[in-house]
Design a binder for these strands. Structure first.
Lengths: 196, 196
DNA sequence: TAGATTGTTAATCGATTAACAATC
DNA sequence: TAGATTGTTAATCGATTAACAATC
């Protein structure tokens, strides 16, 4: 969120500086939180002065690895998988330094194998090991039905993938050392309905 | 998460009962947490016995309002909006008691207005007030570009919508009494890249 | 009655906030 | 030097966990 603020803020107007107060207000957190967070990430900021916008922005980009190009695969070429694919491809077309590169798509449905989203072909899931290795894919996005998700994730892990973003509505098991994040659309929708 | 466990667990095998230990294990939380949560929601559960699966399931469904049918609109018929539309329509086709009903889609692009996703037509965003009122839409999903999001949300709020799920990467303002949830895909992707 | 498991209180832990000394 | 704002410690707050009495 800090990075997003730093990217949208007008540098010139404030001599290239921003205080924890202003940054906090724009990011929706307290100034104390801002200082604690930024100090934890490294000693940017100068007492009595504030934080240099440009320098801090670059620091955060680097901390978040946004300055490295990362090859990502999407498993599941249903409507969600396709939407995610278009998102990444589209974003990369607009921002030339967007850090994600969609290297491959996978699906188990023979009708989908051979299709292309943009320039990126859909392969059969059986080829996950082969193609992710070949294309040096480090990150996978899982957008398959719940009952297929664990199998897919196991294949990804075996193929050496280090980070997984899971959209399937199941708790998945991954070995130590592999990062797993979950975003569960159906839970979000339920959560919202709770307040009606 | 508890509800999801209760929906997938085999009732017959355990005499229709489940303990906080088992429920916690399957949901990925401690037994103490389970008991605290379920007790907060209402005094289900019997000492020395456990929780009745079927009864607890129905209770949770009712607490989460999953037993009420809710009309939802999606604003933004780009690839994400379409994917979400297909998700809701598809889920409703499979589970006849799925609680969400996609009542309308909106977009500002004249090329998209008039399109249909399944049976559901895409209207121009200017018609949000008119159509959401007419179709008794209580919930909106926002899947438009960041710069359009606040305007769209304002229109939804004015039209009396009570809950909004926002996919645009911006902090939005809504008046007291309107529920706003955010799921930010680009933040998820950044977060994951952080660990590489 | 004995065993099990909840409901609930007390203890622990971690995260957030407030405060202030350090220093630019 | 005076004013500003950070870095950092101490105080507060809330959430999680452990423990146990209540009770089925």
């Amino acid at each position: 969120m800090y990075l997003r603020v730093l990217e949208t803020v007008d540098e010139d107007v404030r001599g290239g500086l921003i205080s924890s107060f202003e940054l906090g207000e724009k990011a929706g957190v307290t100034p104390a939180q801002v200082r604690k967070d930024l100090n934890f990430l490294g000693g940017f900021g100068k007492q009595g002065v504030g934080y240099q916008i440009a320098a801090l922005r670059d620091e955060l980009r680097s901390v978040l690895n946004l300055d490295k190009e990362i090859n990502v695969a999407i498993v599941g070429a249903g409507s969600l998988g396709q939407a995610l694919a278009r998102y990444i491809i589209g974003r990369r077309a607009v921002e030339k330094d967007y850090h994600l590169r969609l290297a491959a798509l996978f699906d188990s449905d023979p009708a989908k194998v051979g299709m292309k989203i943009g320039e990126v072909p859909v392969h059969h899931v059986d080829r996950i090991p082969e193609i992710t290795r070949e294309r040096q894919v480090r990150m996978a996005i899982v957008a398959v039905p719940a009952q297929a998700a664990q199998r897919v994730v196991d294949a990804c892990v075996d193929a050496g993938i280090e980070a997984i973003l899971n959209f399937a509505p199941v708790k998945l098991k991954v070995p130590e050392g592999v990062r797993l994040h979950n975003t569960d659309l159906s839970v979000e929708l339920m959560h919202l309905a709770y307040y009606l």
